[in-house]
Design a binder for these strands. Sequence first.
DNA 1: CGAAGCGTTGAGAGCCGTCAAACTACGTGG
DNA 2: CCACGTAGTTTGACGGCTCTCAACGCTTCG
Lengths: 232, 232
Amino acid sequence: MRPHEIEQIKSSHLFHDMADEHFSSLVTAAYLQRFPAHVQLLHEGDRPDFLHILLEGGVELYSRHDGRETIIAIIRPVTTFILAAVVGDFPYLASARTLEAARILLIPAESVRAIADKDAAFSRSLVRELSLAFRGVMRELKNQKLRNSAERLANWIIRTDSVSGRSGRFTIPHDKRRLASLLGMSPENLSRSLVTVSGHGVKLNGRTVVIEEPDRLATFAKPSTTIDEAEN
Amino acid sequence: MRPHEIEQIKSSHLFHDMADEHFSSLVTAAYLQRFPAHVQLLHEGDRPDFLHILLEGGVELYSRHDGRETIIAIIRPVTTFILAAVVGDFPYLASARTLEAARILLIPAESVRAIADKDAAFSRSLVRELSLAFRGVMRELKNQKLRNSAERLANWIIRTDSVSGRSGRFTIPHDKRRLASLLGMSPENLSRSLVTVSGHGVKLNGRTVVIEEPDRLATFAKPSTTIDEAEN
DNA sequence: CGAAGCGTTGAGAGCCGTCAAACTACGTGG
DNA sequence: CCACGTAGTTTGACGGCTCTCAACGCTTCG
């Protein structure tokens, strides 16, 4: 692992406050692994072996049920995932596969739990991280229950622009079919929703999205701090 | 507060492992309050003042957005709620109101956070509680994205029977309109979904639900351990 | 007895999914 | 360089799911 990456992980909220000694022991127990694109990382229902930290590339969490499949989340570096399953030794509620080639740090689940028991500061960070994760899913649940598909798309555009620097222009970072699944609609319906938002201040060109009239888009999307805000 | 209730709280997962001294200090800082039915307890967007523990009665968490409203959860004793907001001092993502008269223990949020910082065992319990809460919402998100309304109803029936003793007979513990909102559908649609499940081994009489042919119901509902299982 | 609230039913419209076909972009091999 | 194949996307047609609106019956309670 590259030194600046160790730094980066150590400086993230989850690991920042813990004893250096414990952090080292986590890192030395860990495996850094490269995966090619479209490789299955986790199977829903399995028990967790490793806490995963995505350092590079992209990963999708998805779930299948009775012939249907939906994307739960798309993960970009640097992000730790399946934390809730790891700390409680619970079976995964979703499967994971790489979207592109990815570098992932694998920390043995047993080590994470052992150090969570020993290191109070780490345990406090886990509390914070899990409460944020909880709120993230809660927001997504509200997004699904309180909005129709065009509104979900419009707010996704606002949010994505927001995290990519508010330049008013960005590129959809994957298939449109994946975006459709993430937003909870069919690919065909996403096409139509894209046409709909085009009538509300957005210009589209392939995967390039340009927000030409932010106010008109916001009027249509009606973003809410208790659904869309990212960082708490 | 009644002595057996203090026992009951202390013996719950969240408080069981913490130092007695810290538990006492939480309880002495707490207020026990009675609320009549249909009283607003919390407003979405506010900051948390107290951790709430429902001792008696019923509470609903709900959220409004752009003229729509949906019930997020219906809470029955003994259950603590809004934990994620309290530990991180984050604004509520949902509002809460009593369904019936309720007795609620209110522990100052500041005390909870202070003792979470001091008591490592309590912090570990919080980790566990929050990971379970996370998984609960995640399951609900999957329920919404992967099932249609009749399937959600059928699985709700199976789950409700399951927690009420698997007798094959129970009473819907509130309005049907609330059940509809909880399940993510309109009241009219719930009526029709009830007709649908009646064709799959369920007998209905007002709010009384009788599962006459569990196998047929299960065949229709297709319950899944990674969506419906309650306790992990 | 009358009023009000809840639940059900029917009609209609809109949202959304499925299926099929056409179109596009892109890369490959001839 | 071009023809072609493939995967992704778009469009149209259609049907089904779900919501809204309205009417009606039932129960409860004043």
